[in-house]
Nucleic acid binder design. Structure first.
Lengths: 340, 340
DNA sequence: CCGAGAATTGAATACGTATTCAATAGTCCC
DNA sequence: GGGACTATTGAATACGTATTCAATTCTCGG
């Protein structure tokens, strides 16, 4: 190969020298839609290939002040809902020319260090999944001009765009189903107390139960964690009068509940007791579980999130939007069907 | 807040002006271990806070020519093994001051566009999981001075560092177990034909079977995909003489096999037939499955990968290392125990 | 109080690209 | 053939930081 001083990576200037053109010409050769003659572009590309030149996107980011990076803050990857959505988000963003900078905050961590990290990295936008957001966070981002979109989370009172499932209405439907299946002792397994998903699903559930004339549900907390959900289920089963229907704040915990039932109880799901989840993760459909649930279509949610991000990037002034993605109740074998 | 012209983000120069110091002083105030007086640093930090200044890591990357980004190429996130490892990798890298730039290649895609993308983004290093690597890829990266570490994949003939589980030896153990449990008709469910994991596990399995005096196994291909693994299992069950022990190239496919068995066959796993996987994903331990498997400790693997990456970054010349992380056979209920 | 050495500081510059702007070459129409 | 465009090009500069280097101040022992 050609004469690049020492081991330095070739730059646009090196390519320009070899191709006999100026540095801006090289820049234009690698810029879609730039004003450059075909033969000049060819000369440049040939020289570039010879030298093994690749445009430095860091330098490009500096001049354009757009990094083409989107920060994605996500944790709880053990819940299959999230990696599934992450993969879709990354794929759709890639099609739009953006890369994903991944931020996984440890479970209980505050989001302030994350904020600092994200803003220093000059991401063009931020997608927050499985993470709450403080008002300072939202304000700083908007001051910095970084669009923020929340997925599967909502923060009341802050004007931030969100994409969520039908948490409250879905839970109402679940309550109705439980009532019409003839259950008398409902229970609710909460996720994290401060998570909007858990709160909204609980609120809808309560409302639906009241409307159906059922008593307030028993209540345990599973923290969206598999083992803690199992403990919570165990606690319910140990009650003098255990529930006959358990709505878990997400599928992942519902699977844990089914495991515990399976292993430590004689109760048969779908007969003696109903277990219902929320999300419709792939495993919910597995025959071993056949988990009744209210669906949150992660692929569609991924599309909507990215669409929202791109929209905010193109029209910075536009107001925040709360996008509720439709889902539906899926009756499987883990819950009793409604009576005819 | 103070007087920044129009809506521009404040720069080090703005802070310098407010603090009454020079721009380099601001740089030093934000650089660990730089030579700066305490009171100067305080002045700077106060002015920075007032202006809402954050160092621009893009610009820093340009001058230091280190992006502090590590590219992680990963797909098949539906297999829980990968997100689990990803989360650990991201956490450990974060502790070392690196961020994860995520590349998810669509299943069958060639890795060449990925290469281009990665090198243009000037990642400091590259972690390849669930992706093969061509010789050109490895050569280009080494020419560009970007350390590459493969996880759970190996490419014969290229000097690239790898971190893998005990694929071949683990599979030998599995074959022994199957023999000593009294099985006579083994089967192997391959993953992707060109994946080193699948190949090595198959090779070890064959070797172990031969050593134990068992016949060559029946063979189907599940492509590491849940639905295709179910089809493959269905095909095995439809044979005139179905196998009495199936070794699946990973846990994810083994779970699919168990599902199919559960739903479409009267055979009871662990009694009439043994199903064995590889990886020990969390779900393998779930009571509904109780999948016998050979473990690949993902957390440990994540540690090793990052250690390898950091080592290569600190000592660029060092030769490639093939790191085999130990695992062990876990006897659960999906396979018959060995006879006493 | 003096001088050697350490600590601190700012001016100048480099990093690799995109963009602005003026200059030049090429095209088209009548 | 001339004028009005359009297409193409390169010189100069900006982007926001880190680093080099020389200058200055401070410290301390004698």
């Amino acid at each position: 190969m050609s004469s690049i001083k020492n081991g330095r990576r070739p730059t646009a200037r090196d390519v320009a020298r070899v191709a006999g053109v100026s540095q801006p010409a090289v820049s234009r050769a690698f810029t879609e839609g730039a004003s450059i003659a075909v033969e000049t572009r060819d000369k440049v590309l040939r020289a570039a290939k010879e030298l093994g030149y690749r445009p430095n996107l860091i330098a490009r980011s500096l001049t354009t002040s757009r990094s083409r990076l989107v920060g994605v803050a996500m944790s709880y990857l053990e819940n299959p809902f999230y990696p599934a959505m992450l993969e879709r988000i990354a794929a759709i963003l890639a099609d739009a020319g953006y890369k994903v900078l991944l931020f996984t905050s440890p479970p209980g961590a505050p989001c302030e260090p994350l904020l600092e990290d994200v803003l220093r990295n000059r991401v063009d936008a931020l997608i927050l999944a499985s993470a709450s957001i403080t008002s300072r966070f939202a304000e700083e981002c908007s001051r910095a001009g970084v669009p923020v979109v929340l997925v599967n989370r909502r923060t009341p009172g802050h004007r931030t765009s969100t994409v969520t499932g039908m948490n409250e209405d879905g839970a109402v439907v679940i309550a109705e189903r439980i009532a019409r299946a003839g259950h008398r002792r409902p229970a609710f397994m909460a996720g994290l107390e401060n998570a909007s998903t858990s709160q909204e699903r609980e609120r809808g559930f309560l409302r639906g139960l009241v409307a159906a004339g059922l008593p307030e549900p028993l209540r345990v907390v599973g923290h969206f964690d598999f083992e803690r959900a199992r403990s919570a289920m165990r606690a319910l089963l140990a009650l003098p009068k255990p529930p006959d229907a358990v709505f878990c704040a997400n599928d992942y915990m519902a699977l844990a509940a089914l495991q515990t039932l399976h292993e430590e109880s004689a109760l048969r799901p779908g007969r003696d007791i109903s277990i219902i989840g929320f999300d419709d993760i792939p495993a919910a459909a597995w025959p071993s579980f056949a988990l009744s649930t209210f669906s949150q279509p992660y692929a569609l949610m991924a599309e909507r999130v990215v669409a929202r991000v791109l929209d905010q990037l193109r029209h910075p002034g536009r107001p925040a939007v709360e996008d509720v993605v439709p889902g539906s109740f899926l009756q499987r074998r883990s819950s009793r069907p409604v009576r005819a």
